[in-house]
Simulated assay, not measured.
Amino acid sequence: MSATVTDPAVAKEPQVPAGPVRRRPGGRLGRRLGSGVVQAFLVVIGLVWVTPLAGLLLSSLRSPEDNASSGWWSTFTSPGQLSFDNYAELLGNAGITQAFWNTVLISVPATTLVIAIAALAGYAFAWLEFPGRDWLFLLVVALLVVPVQVGLLPVAKLFGQLGLFGTIPGVVLFHVAYGLPFAIFLLRNYFADIPREMLEAARMDGGSEWRIFTRLVLPVGRPAIASLAIFQFLWVWNDMLVALLFADSSSQPLTVELQSQVRQFGSNIDVLAPGAFLSLIVPVVVFFAFQRHFVQGVMAGSVK
């Protein structure tokens, strides 16, 4: 009889029985406490962020006498103080309403033009071959470090010669010029992550560059474009430095008008509170409108 010898090198390892993995009670308790601490921390941060907004809203709904005699938190015990009289007077204020529409006429074109030009330039820098492409993109990146204050006086002199000083188009052009470097840099890097095979397949199917850009690149780059729209709109809507210099009394936005109201009337809370809340709520609405695309654009950079 011949004995069978088992080679230890090829011997099978012992099988581990399949089944649910037992977790230690201490690990489960640590995870629950950790998630509870994180949730409590987020709740505290949310309350800290919401409290000034709630205070501004309640102050805008109270009369000047109530605001002078007590704090906004007194409305929780005396809700009869709240009314929309301040907003009715605000809508009747010609300076505030004109400044609000000036802000819209500045912010919307400045955001739209930046997105349109930056999307075209970003696609060209990412996927088109032309002489000096890398050097031009390096120049765009270098413009990111140029502060806005450097160009205020030269551009003001240029606008004075062109007849654009003190006009809404002048303010829009300034915001477009200084918003393009960051916009081109952002969209170019996002468009460059699109798989080359996708673009090559579209070209083999007879698609022109314009058709590829509008039907393929723009839909894929929607999260990055939405993020750029939020950044650009918030920057232009909340700007006061550029408007103080380049806008006159007929073209000044809401931020400058509110600042002038403080200077002229002092603590006129019945005008400043509803005006400030109106200036604040529009960017908040825009952010939540594009929130889903904004989160996708932020998360895309972490997984690619």
Score class of each variant (00 low, 15 high):
Asp134Ser: 13
Gly160Phe: 05
Val150Gln: 03
Phe174Glu: 10
Val141Thr: 11
Thr167Tyr: 01
Leu144Gln: 09
Arg133Lys: 11
Val176Tyr: 05
Gly160Thr: 07
Phe125Cys: 09
Val155Trp: 07
Gln161Trp: 11
Trp127Leu: 14
Leu173Thr: 10
Phe130Ile: 12
Pro169Trp: 07
Tyr178Gln: 04
Val145Thr: 07
Leu162Asn: 12
Gly122Trp: 00
Ala156Asp: 08
Ala121Tyr: 09
Gly170Ser: 13
Ile168Trp: 04
Ala142Asn: 10
Arg133Ile: 11
Leu152Glu: 02
Val171Ser: 08
Ala126Trp: 12
Leu162Phe: 15
Ile168Asp: 01
Phe165His: 10
Glu129Trp: 12
Val171Ala: 13
Leu128Arg: 15
Val145Tyr: 05
Ala121Glu: 01
Leu120Ile: 14
His175Gly: 02
Gly163Ile: 02
Leu136His: 07
Leu128Tyr: 11
Pro131Tyr: 14
Gly151Asp: 03
Phe159Gln: 10
Phe174Thr: 04
Phe165Arg: 10
Lys157Ser: 15
Glu129His: 11
Leu164Arg: 05
Val140Tyr: 05
Val141Ile: 14
Ala124Gly: 12
Val150Arg: 03
Pro131Ile: 13
Gly122Arg: 04
Leu158Asn: 08
Pro154Ser: 03
Leu143Asp: 07
Ala121Gly: 11
Val176Cys: 04
Ile168Val: 13
Ala156Met: 15
Ala142Ser: 14
Ala177Ile: 01
Leu164Ala: 08
Leu144His: 06
Lys157Met: 15
Phe174Ile: 07
Ala142Leu: 13
Phe174Asn: 04
Gln161Gly: 14
Val148Tyr: 00
Leu138Ser: 13
Pro131Cys: 11
Val146Gly: 02
Leu128His: 06
Pro147Lys: 01
Val176Trp: 05
Val141Pro: 00
Gly122Gln: 04
Val145Leu: 12
Leu138Phe: 13
Val150Ala: 06
Leu120Cys: 11
Pro147Gly: 00
Leu144Ala: 08
Val146Arg: 05
Val150Tyr: 02
Glu129Asp: 15
Phe125Thr: 02
Tyr178Trp: 06
His175Gln: 10
Val172Ala: 07
Gly163Trp: 02
Val145Ser: 14
Val145Asn: 09
Gln161Asn: 12
Asp134Trp: 08
Leu162Ser: 15
Lys157Thr: 14
Ala126Glu: 14
Tyr123Met: 05
Val171Gly: 05
Asp134Thr: 14
Ala124Leu: 10
Val155Ser: 08
Gly151Met: 00
Trp135Thr: 15
Leu139Arg: 01
Val171Phe: 12
Phe125Met: 08
Val172Leu: 03
Ala118Val: 00
Tyr178Val: 03
Val141Ser: 06
Gly163Phe: 08
Phe137Trp: 10
Leu162Glu: 07
Ala121Ser: 14
Gly163Tyr: 05
Gly122Tyr: 00
Ala119Val: 02
His175Ala: 06
Leu139Trp: 11
Leu153Glu: 09
Trp135Phe: 12
Tyr123Glu: 00
Ala119Thr: 11
Gly151Asn: 03
Pro147Asp: 01
Tyr123Ala: 04
Ala156Trp: 09
Leu164Gly: 08
Leu143Ile: 00
Lys157Asp: 15
Ala119Gln: 08
Phe125Val: 09
Gly170Val: 09
Val172Glu: 04
Leu138His: 10
Val140Thr: 11
Leu158Tyr: 13
